[in-house]
């Protein structure tokens, strides 16, 4: 009991009486943890942006102009039964024509051609929305054998699949790039933090030697450093939370406006994942401090 209270007392004294060293160590750790949080945030924002792009994609099934509404409705019912599709929007021949006219209103040649044609050249269409690419794959397979396959003029699914493949490739590259960057900066940050702790103990090597000469055991000398390391880690994590959450709230409106992702909130993401993000960071900081302290102290205990 007396030993534990003394270890705690020495840990506190060591931290307080080496104030500048403590501030430097703490600042380095905070910078490291803020950088790690930023890497988590960038990853989440990238994910949200890519999901948004994927969700904005839609696939059209264009029917022949001769297809009657009853056939289209029947096809819609069959497609809605597929589990991978979120919703299906019906577009009548007339709506298709109106939309085309609206899209090409500035092109006089097209407008004139339409007038010359007289009849509506468009058929009805179904616009499919799926949760993910697999939903569209499923729809494509179904269409190839469906009883309404003969009244389909064209479908966007192959084009969509190409886009999705490219998007997947891009996503993979972005994630790999982010992973390499995270790994590089993370490693850099860990080396900096590790060496800061070692330098901090190096400056106290003479004191460690004196303690040994007075008859202190290795444990009696080392424990306060371990406690200090854990306290630094805890304080650094709390400061990181105190910096990152308000910062996330501050940049969130700009981020939403820039990326146009209303459904994603960086602050909510950090709060929701606080245990895994900040918990992991606390663990990393504690491990860095304890390992660096143990290595450094051990070196100077050989007196």
């Amino acid at each position: 009991m007396a030993r534990s209270s003394r270890v705690l007392k020495f840990a506190w004294q060591n931290m307080w009486r080496n104030l500048w060293l403590s501030i430097v160590t703490l600042t380095t750790l905070v910078l490291v943890l803020v950088s790690l949080t930023a890497l988590f945030a960038v990853n989440a924002v990238t994910d949200a942006a890519l999901t948004k792009i994927q969700s904005k994609l839609e696939v059209a099934i264009n029917f022949l102009p001769t297809a009657i509404p009853q056939q289209v409705d029947d096809a819609k019912i069959q497609l809605l039964a597929l589990p991978g599709l979120d919703s299906i929007t019906s577009i009548s021949k007339e709506e298709a024509l109106l939309k085309f006219k609206e899209r090409t209103k500035d092109n006089a040649t097209i407008q004139q051609s339409l007038q010359e044609l007289g009849d509506n050249p468009f058929g009805p269409a179904l616009i499919l929305h799926a949760q993910n690419p697999a939903g569209y794959d499923q729809a494509l397979k179904f269409i190839q054998t469906a009883n309404f396959k003969d009244i389909i003029e064209t479908t966007d699914i192959p084009i969509y699949q190409d886009i999705v493949a490219k998007l997947d490739n891009l996503t993979g590259q972005v994630k790999r790039g982010a992973g390499i960057m995270a790994g590089f900066f993370g490693l850099l940050a860990l080396i900096v933090a590790f060496n800061t702790v070692r330098v901090s103990i190096y400056s106290q090597r003479e004191e460690i030697g004196i303690m040994k000469l007075v008859g202190a055991t290795n444990g009696f000398i080392s424990w306060p450093y371990v406690i200090d390391g854990s306290l630094y880690a805890l304080l650094a994590t709390l400061l990181t939370i105190g910096i990152c959450l308000p910062l996330a709230a501050l940049i969130e409106p700009t981020l939403k406006a820039f990326l146009n992702i209303e459904s994603f909130s960086l602050t909510q993401y950090l709060i929701k994942n606080s245990l895994s993000i900040f918990g992991l960071e606390l663990l990393i900081a504690v491990v860095i401090n304890i390992v660096a302290s143990a290595i450094a102290v051990r070196k100077y205990l050989k007196v």
């Binding site: 007396a2 030993r3 003394r6 303690m211 007075v214 008859g215 202190a216 055991t217 009696f220």
Partner: peptide, 11 residues
């Protein structure tokens, strides 16, 4: 006091 603290002397 440190020399006594290392041997576990009481307060």
């Amino acid at each position: 006091a440190f020399a006594l603290e290392v041997v576990g002397a009481s307060r």
